Amino acid sequence: MTMLSRVAERLFWMARYLERAEDTARLTQAYTHLVMDIPEGSEPGWDILVNILDAAPMYTSRFRVYSEQNVLRFLIADPDNSSSIHHSIVAARENVRTTRDVLPEEAWEHVNELYHYSRETSESSIGRRNRHAFLEQVYTRCQMINGLIISTLCRDHAYRFIKLGHLLERADMTTRVIDVGAGALLGEENAKSPVTPLVWASLLRSLSAMGTYRRTIGPLIEADAVVDFMFCEASLPRSVKFCLDGIRKELTPLHNNKEALRVLESSRRKLTRFNADETQPEKLHQFIDRLQLNLNTLSDSICETWFPPPQG
């Protein structure tokens, strides 16, 4: 089967933006609960959410302080922030609108409904009164849309580019949460803090992995076990290994895949050498930096190989 490169590009980015909206909603929800549950005086700063999404330069150009209201406005409703929930939904909708003929008929209806819901309620959901309901609606609807697409599409090139975007975005978010979240919340001086289990539990919830962790590893939440689980557990859909293995599966049937596979295999080799038990915080940060660089290179390789250059 062949397909237009413009269509492949839009499907790829549709999947990335839908995953981004869901992941940002989950992260914001989990962090809000952490701040409310943690003992007074031990609360981490709201800047951590901005740093996880690597959006500090844009944020500081717009806001002077990292207050709860400013950060949540930036992450939930800001139309110009590419990491915000509303911006991601708008971008996903536009990509679905231009590829409706290769997607299930109901996909446009559900994405359009999500767009109108976000447009009407995102601004009023910055405060705590409406925030929980809004975030839950966002990630529930994103899951429904992804489930619809995955359960009805033929396993052709359209499906492959959707999966590539979906898995790349998910791997990127997992590495960001573990790197910035764990590094900022659990510096060496806080390693023995009584709130440490709460923090790691929050990180697992932000990645929708708490229940699976408890069934697979056990009820005791420890730093090394969480990091190893989120990076190397082959059966966990949100682990980095699962995502990289899935990307390899979707790249293999595509033509001209040599360069993308080369970059991917470099990431997979790095992951096989990873051992959380032997990794100090600084080494973990360096490892994740290299892995994220590989993920960015892989994304660039996919775009350069299969998507047309910008016209201008």
Rank of each mutant, 00 (worst) to 15 (best):
D54Q: 13
V90W: 03
G183F: 03
R129W: 06
V7A: 08
L207N: 07
F287V: 07
P197S: 07
L114Y: 05
E169V: 11
T2S: 12
L11P: 03
L4N: 08
I162H: 13
L261D: 09
F74I: 06
L75I: 14
D277W: 09
T196R: 14
S267Y: 07
S42F: 03
A260R: 05
P57N: 04
Q69W: 09
I145F: 05
R160H: 11
V226A: 09
A107H: 09
R73Q: 08
A92I: 09
V7I: 13
E22L: 03
R238F: 10
G147A: 06
D277K: 15
A91P: 03
H87M: 12
D289G: 07
I288T: 13
N130E: 07
T305S: 14
M173C: 08
D23C: 12
E68S: 14
A171H: 00
I126R: 09
Q137L: 01
P197T: 07
L75G: 11
L53N: 15
R20N: 14
E304Q: 15
S84R: 07
T60V: 04
E282T: 11
Y139D: 06
T196Q: 13
D101Q: 15
L220K: 12
F74L: 06
F74W: 07
L254D: 03
L135D: 14
A55W: 11
W108K: 02
A225C: 02
A25V: 11
E136W: 10
P197N: 08
N130L: 05
M36I: 05
S193R: 05
R97S: 07
P281T: 10
R97L: 06
R215G: 02
L148R: 11
N190W: 12
R100M: 05
N81P: 10
T174A: 13
T32H: 14
R248H: 09
G127E: 14
H33L: 08
F229P: 14
A30Y: 06
N70W: 09
I150P: 00
E282C: 01
R128Y: 02
L168R: 12
G127V: 12
F287N: 06
V138W: 09
R10T: 01
S301L: 02
Y213Q: 00
I217H: 03
M3D: 04
P237S: 00
Q292S: 13
